[in-house]
C-alpha cells in the first residue's frame, strides 16, 4: 500500500541466547513481521508478554537495528532514503515506565525542550514551546516545569512523556504499553488526552498493549501477535466480533467482561507459550490450538485475506478439508 504513512516490511530480529557456531541459540523475537499504518489511523498491537510487541516497537522506531527487513516512512526506507535524524522527528515513542524514561536530573521543562534543541531550535524558543506543550497535556508549566521526575505522580510523568514526544511535532507516535502502568482512572484520562491530541494534530498511533479493552476503545485496526509473528490483523470491529484465528478467539475469550453472561468460565488457553528459542514447526500456535488439524504441525500458514483489510494466518481459512 503506497499511501501508508509507516510500514514494516518483513522485519526480523533474532537475539543471541548463548552458544557458538552450530550450538548457537537465537530467540526469534520478531520473525518476518509486515504491516502498514494509514495516516491518522490507530493500529492496536496485542499479544501475550514475550510475543515481540516491544521489540516490534523498537524496530519501528529504529532504536534496535533489524536483522532483515525495512521500515518505510511515507514509502521511503528509514535510515537510507530518509535520514535517521529526520525519521526520528516524524516517528516518536512513549515508553511504559514513565519514571525510567525521564532523566532523574532534568526538570520537566528541560526534558520536553531537549528534543527540539537537538533539531536546531534555539534554547529560549524550545523552552517556550515546551511550556506550551506542558500546558496542552494538562500540566501548569509554572508549577510542573521546574520539577524533577521523582516529585510528580506517574500519570503526570506520562503526560510529560507525551509532551516530549509531541515536541518534535511528529506524524506517528508509537505507544509501547504507555498507559499499562497507570491506575484505571488516570489511564482513562491519559487515553482521552491521546484521543484529543490525535484529532487536534492528525496523529497516527501505534498502540501496543496487553489490555484488549483499551485497545478496542482506541484502535481503528488491531494486529495480534504470537511468538514473534503476526497471526491476524484487521479492522477493530471485525476482529473483535468475528475473529478468524483461533489465537485471537482465545484472547478475546480471556478478556475480562462486566457482563455476567459472558463471564470467563475456564481458561481458554492452557500453559505458557512455547519457548521462542525453538518455536514449534509449522503453525507456531498448533501446540496450544484447540482446532489444530492435518497441515498445522507441518506447514506454516501464510496470511490470507479473509475480509476487507482483514488478514489471518490460519489453515482453517484456506484449507478445504477444515470445513469437513
Amino acid at each position: 500500500m503506497s499511501d501508508a504513512i509507516l510500514s514494516a516490511h518483513n522485519l526480523v530480529k533474532h537475539f543471541n541466547a548463548g552458544g557458538w557456531g552450530a550450538a548457537r541459540k537465537v530467540v526469534r523475537a520478531v520473525d518476518d513481521v509486515s504491516f502498514d499504518v494509514a495516516p491518522g489511523e490507530t493500529l492496536g498491537v496485542v499479544g501475550e508478554s514475550g510475543c515481540g510487541k516491544s521489540t516490534t516497537a523498537r524496530l519501528l522506531t529504529h532504536l534496535l537495528p533489524s536483522d532483515r527487513g525495512e521500515v518505510r516512512f511515507r514509502g521511503r526506507v528509514a535510515g537510507t532514503e530518509v535520514p535517521l535524524k529526520e525519521f526520528r522527528r516524524h516517528v516518536q515513542m512513549v515508553f511504559q515506565d514513565s519514571y525510567a524514561s525521564l532523566n532523574p536530573r532534568m526538570t520537566m521543562l528541560d526534558a520536553v525542550a531537549f528534543g527540539p534543541t537537538v533539531h536546531g531550535v534555539d534554547q529560549p524558543e524550545a523552552r517556550r514551546r515546551a511550556g506550551a506543550l506542558l500546558e496542552r497535556v494538562g500540566l501548569d508549566p509554572a508549577r510542573f516545569g521546574p520539577r524533577y521526575p521523582h516529585e510528580i505522580s506517574g500519570g503526570q510523568r506520562q503526560r510529560v512523556n507525551i509532551a516530549r514526544a509531541l515536541a518534535f511535532d511528529p506524524d506517528v507516535i508509537v505507544l509501547d504499553e504507555a498507559v499499562s502502568a497507570l491506575d484505571k482512572s488516570v489511564e482513562a484520562q491519559v487515553l482521552n488526552l491521546l484521543t484529543e491530541l490525535r484529532r487536534e494534530r492528525g496523529l497516527t498511533y501505534i498502540f501496543i498493549s496487553h489490555d484488549l479493552n483499551v485497545v478496542r476503545h482506541i484502535s481503528d485496526r488491531v494486529m495480534v501477535m504470537y511468538l514473534g509473528e503476526v497471526v491476524e490483523i484487521g479492522p477493530t470491529a471485525d476482529l473483535y466480533t468475528a475473529p478468524r484465528h483461533p489465537y485471537t478467539e482465545a484472547l478475546l475469550a480471556a478478556m475480562p467482561s462486566l457482563d455476567p453472561d459472558r463471564r470467563t468460565m475456564e481458561a481458554p488457553l492452557q500453559g505458557d507459550p512455547p519457548n521462542p528459542i525453538d518455536p514449534p514447526p509449522g503453525c507456531r500456535f498448533h501446540t496450544r490450538c484447540a482446532r489444530a488439524f492435518g497441515p498445522c504441525p507441518g506447514t506454516a500458514p501464510v496470511p490470507a485475506l479473509v475480509g476487507r483489510r482483514h488478514l489471518a494466518s490460519c489453515h482453517l481459512n484456506t484449507v478445504k478439508e477444515a470445513a469437513e
Partner: peptide
Amino acid sequence: KLEYIEAARASGA
C-alpha cells in the same frame, strides 16, 4: 539501559 537514554536516542541526538 534506562529508557530515558532510549528516549534520547529516539530524539535523533
